[in-house]
Amino acid sequence: MAPALYTASVPVFLHYLEQARGLVAQCRTQPDLLEAKLAPDMFSGAQQFASAAGFALRGTFPMIGERTPDFPEAAMDYDGVLARIDFAHERLVTLDPATFDGAEGRTVRHIAGFAELDQKAGDYLHLFAMPNFLFHLSMGFAVLRQGGLEIGKSDFDGLHDYPQGFSF
């Protein structure tokens, strides 16, 4: 049986990175949608998805006592965002569940904005890393939806199903 923090992180991040990839891929013919922002002081859609990919790595590697991998240089455009998502996915699939043995007892020291925090690994994952991952993924989704891309909840989570033409 896989350690609890592995099960609560890696499979979830992998699932939603696949969803993020699918959302970004739908911008293939309209890559300028990724440049949009919900508000002037917010990240662009591209940066939101890139930040989500970053939190997938930032949310796992510190829990196993490893340094978070650095993303390769890539433009903050359609191809660059897909490269970041793919990089995060490739790194996560290499993680052995056994490396999470004892993670519950680790303390993760990290920066949240300008705050320096020390959190037990479970709190770090559940109260910081996962919420931030989902925040940036949701904001990226919202940018694309606001920009007119016809996407819905099923595109976000890969689980919901609604009939064609359904709306709330």
Rank of each mutant, 00 (worst) to 15 (best):
M1A: 13
A2Q: 11
A2S: 11
A2T: 11
A2M: 13
A2H: 09
Y6L: 04
T7G: 06
V10K: 07
V12P: 07
V12K: 08
F13I: 03
F13D: 09
F13A: 03
L14N: 07
H15M: 09
H15F: 09
Y16G: 07
E18A: 14
Q19P: 14
A20H: 08
G22M: 05
V24A: 04
V24Q: 04
A25G: 09
C27W: 00
R28V: 13
R28H: 05
D32R: 11
L34H: 11
E35I: 04
A36F: 14
L38W: 04
A39L: 11
P40S: 09
D41E: 11
D41C: 04
F43P: 00
F43D: 00
S44V: 03
Q47A: 07
Q47N: 06
Q48W: 00
A53Y: 00
A53I: 01
G54W: 02
F55C: 04
G59V: 02
T60E: 07
T60R: 09
M63D: 06
G65S: 11
R67I: 12
R67K: 15
D70W: 11
D70C: 06
F71N: 14
E73W: 13
E73F: 14
A75N: 12
M76F: 12
D79Q: 15
D79E: 15
G80Q: 06
V81M: 06
L82A: 02
R84E: 04
I85G: 00
I85D: 00
F87Q: 01
A88Q: 05
A88M: 01
L92Q: 02
V93Y: 03
T94M: 15
P97S: 09
P97L: 09
T99W: 14
F100Q: 06
D101C: 13
D101M: 15
G102F: 05
G102P: 06
A103V: 03
E104L: 07
E104I: 06
G105A: 13
R106W: 05
T107H: 08
T107I: 13
T107V: 14
V108F: 03
R109C: 09
I111K: 12
I111P: 02
A112P: 05
A112D: 12
G113A: 05
G113Q: 08
F114A: 12
A115T: 07
A115M: 13
E116L: 09
L117S: 05
K120Q: 15
Y124H: 08
H126W: 15
H126T: 14
L127M: 15
F128E: 14
A129N: 04
M130R: 15
P131M: 06
F133I: 09
L134S: 14
F135E: 07
L137H: 07
L137E: 07
S138W: 13
M139A: 10
G140L: 05
V143M: 01
Q146A: 10
Q146R: 12
L149F: 00
L149G: 01
G152Q: 01
K153S: 00
D155W: 02
D157K: 02
D157V: 00
H160N: 07
Y162S: 02
P163C: 03
P163M: 02
F168C: 09
